[in-house]
């Protein structure tokens, strides 16, 4: 396949940045999108140019590191996958592909396609945990009966890998799907209920401080989420927040 790539290049966080065009040849349809970028970078390095910086780690769709906005969609045109699992067979010979970083005020660009998603870490630190007294008397979690639906929903929420596709794709750059998944995975379980009020208040407070937008329920986040995190989590977080506030 022969492709034309239009890639966002930005030297650092202070640089203005712009779209630059790169032709790539001999792209196999079996390559992953990141492998295609590896080929591009090898060519750039061979020519003495600076390679395109992009985030990646496990390349198995688990870590949530890859973060590109491809042809107007977070993680590209495929559904239920991260960029590392997007394959070139989803594109056609001769295509022009736009590759941009996840854009949000809460995700400042570090370089090229690499963004700083530590805002998610700070939200998690604000309450996304269960405080356990590990004095030796802690009850075995398996000894506590949990309704199957609650266990399943908590597990589904916990599959969020924190990649930030929800923020990137939301027209308001809202982080509500991420935060609601983190709130839900704990609040549905007895161990998490103890701190449920404090957790939701603190995490939403931190989310707002980070500069993310307000959710307007477009549902784009749910569609683009590589792990299929449901909007039900946002509704649950809204309920929890109201209960905790009043």
């Amino acid at each position: 396949m022969k492709l034309t790539l239009k890639i966002w290049r930005q030297k650092n966080s202070n640089d203005k940045g712009k779209i630059e065009t790169y032709p790539v040849d001999n792209v196999s349809e079996h390559m992953s999108f990141l492998e295609m970028l590896d080929v591009l970078n090898e060519g750039l390095v061979a020519k003495g140019d600076i390679p395109v910086a992009f985030d990646h780690d496990c390349r198995e769709g688990i870590c949530g590191m890859c973060s590109m906005y491809i042809n107007g969609e977070a993680h590209g045109p495929d559904r239920g996958v991260t960029t590392c699992q997007l394959h070139m067979r989803k594109f056609n010979d001769g295509d022009t592909i736009y590759i941009e970083p996840f854009r949000a005020k809460g995700f400042p660009i570090i370089k090229d396609l690499v963004v700083d998603r530590s805002a998610f870490d700070r939200i998690q630190h604000a309450g996304g945990f269960v405080s356990v007294n590990t004095s030796g008397n802690t009850q075995d979690a398996n000894a506590i009966p949990i309704p199957k639906d609650d266990a399943d929903n908590a597990f589904d929420a916990a599959t969020c890998i924190g990649c930030g596709a929800c923020v990137a794709t939301c027209k308001n750059a809202s982080a509500m799907l991420y935060v609601s998944a983190k709130v839900s995975q704990f609040s549905l379980l007895p161990q998490g209920k103890v701190e449920a009020k404090r957790r939701v208040l603190n995490m939403v407070d931190q989310m707002d401080k980070e500069g993310f937008g307000n959710c307007t329920n477009t549902g784009a986040c749910e569609v683009e989420c590589p792990k299929g995190i449901s909007l039900e989590n946002i509704a649950r977080m809204n309920r929890e927040y109201l209960k905790a506030s009043i």
Partner: peptide
């Protein structure tokens, strides 16, 4: 909400 994304996507 407009302020939450200062640079818009090219596509």
């Amino acid at each position: 909400n407009r302020g939450a994304r200062d640079v818009q996507y090219a596509k």
